[in-house]
């Protein structure tokens, strides 16, 4: 378990599942550079270099230990129209929701609207 897996190619974002709600959350940058989770994949912080990636990894570890999230890992992305899109289709599904139900999941704004209002 302790062996760190090889890091994905950069740029990358950090995603996880919220421990209590189970939905997918993304590490994003708050004011003063602090990291926090967002439901909105559009706000995910993109790590372009090793320093930024290490910062995300460290955040994953502390947040896991703090019982906030589970299954946190880095995902390599490409930037499409200014938005980070996971390169692999599996991770893309996590930023969208079930493809047969466009009315559900992130593609339908689940959790995102509320966050924007909040």
């Amino acid at each position: 378990m302790a062996v760190a897996p090889k890091r994905v190619p950069l740029p990358a974002i950090l995603l996880a599942n919220d421990l209590l709600d189970g939905d997918v959350v993304f590490a994003s940058e708050q004011s003063q550079g602090a990291l926090a989770w967002t439901r909105d994949p559009g706000l995910a912080l993109v790590a372009n270099d090793d320093t930024a990636a290490e910062q995300l990894e460290a955040f994953a570890v502390t947040e896991f230990k703090a019982q906030h999230v589970v299954d946190a890992y880095l995902v390599d992305v490409s930037i499409e129209n200014g938005v980070a899109v996971p390169r692999h289709y599996r991770e893309r599904m996590k930023t969208l929701g079930p493809s047969n139900r466009p009315d559900l999941g992130k593609q339908a704004g689940d959790g995102i609207q509320a966050e924007r209002r909040g």
Binding site: N17, G22, D71, M93
Partner: peptide, 27 residues
């Protein structure tokens, strides 16, 4: 689990014993 007295590694087999899986978008 929520107050931290159970770690994820300890909790996961317990939740699985009660049919709770973690999938892509949710539990």
């Amino acid at each position: 689990r929520l107050d931290g007295s159970l770690t994820e590694d300890e909790f996961k087999p317990l939740r699985l014993k009660n049919g709770v899986y973690l999938q892509l978008h949710a539990y």
